[in-house]
Design a protein around this nucleic acid. Structure first.
Length: 267
DNA sequence: AATGCATGCAACCGCGTTTTC
DNA sequence: AGAAAACGCGGTTGCATGCAT
């Protein structure tokens, strides 16, 4: 009753920022009254989370971020907040918008052009390997720094690959829902950082890796988790090579490119 | 230059979940 | 244990801007 709606003014933003900086935001419902804003708590929360937070990342999505969204959407579907939690500085709302206005459209266009690449849903359900390449595998074969490919070419290739699994997404989701995704993992699964001169000198720079290695790690992902792909490729600030399943889970070698170390830490 | 349409994005709404009393 | 309040998520809307005609 009597509360303001619509776009926020700079004055309102100022009031909200200065109040949260002073007192925090323990109770969103009470906040607008205490801060002197004619807004509902929900509106204040949304404005802060999606726009005013100091750690919000502005600007266009990077190649890696778009790749991550596509990969995670392949696995998780429309779980925007879960996807956002793996993209530091990006909000669920922003990711949702990018998906609907940008990435989804690309998939649709490609589907219209190449209907023969669609999966047979029966094969998906029965767990058979599809004929067309899996999205993440196709992405993994692309290099962002490849001199032959412009970033837009690479982008098209990603989205082209994405479309090959789009038709089966619903069926995949049924399967995915039945698994325990992102289980609680003890942080001890990270190994010590391995320098190339240490005991694991057998870790050599993979053929497809471009740039200078900043660090190498070995990581074990429980078998029940389909978070990473089993073949090599670029991820969010890292390159991973082929994995081995020792029965307890898949072992990956992660190679962090110099300059990408901060990105991986955040991820 | 004017108009209509398409696009992108901020914000709203409804509903399910979690927390508090 | 149950009801009410608060929170958080995902779908949707509406407006501003850009682009095509």
């Amino acid at each position: 009753m009597g509360l303001k709606k619509g776009p926020w003014t700079p004055e309102e933003d100022k009031i909200l920022i200065s109040y949260i900086q002073k007192y925090g935001h323990e109770n969103w419902r009470a906040l607008p009254k205490l801060a002197g804003l004619l807004r509902c708590g929900k509106s204040c929360r949304l404005r802060w989370i999606n726009y005013l937070r100091p750690d919000i990342k502005r600007g266009n999505f990077t190649w890696e971020e778009e790749e991550t969204i596509i990969r995670l959407h392949e696995m998780l579907g429309n779980r925007w907040s879960t996807i956002a939690s793996r993209l530091p500085g990006r909000t669920d709302n922003e990711i949702k918008n990018v998906w609907h206005t940008h990435l989804k459209k690309k998939l649709k266009n490609y589907q219209a052009k190449q209907p023969e690449t669609k999966h047979n849903p029966d094969e998906i359900i029965s767990g058979k390997e599809a004929e067309s390449p899996k999205l993440s595998t196709s992405i993994s074969n692309l290099s962002p720094e490849s001199p032959q490919q412009s970033s837009s070419d690479i982008y098209s290739s990603i989205t082209d690959a994405s479309s090959s699994i789009a038709a089966s997404e619903e069926n995949n989701m049924d399967f995915i829902e039945s698994l325990e995704y992102f289980p609680e993992i003890d942080d001890s699964f990270w190994t010590e950082a391995l320098s190339s001169s240490q005991e694991n000198s057998s870790l050599q720079q993979p053929l497809n890796f471009e740039g200078v290695i900043h660090d190498q790690f070995q990581v074990q992902i429980p078998s029940s988790t389909s978070f990473m792909e089993s073949d090599g490729g670029y991820g969010h600030g890292y390159y991973h090579d082929q994995s081995l399943d020792d029965g307890m889970g898949f072992w990956y070698n992660l190679f962090i490119r110099a300059g990408d170390e901060q990105q991986l830490t955040e991820f």
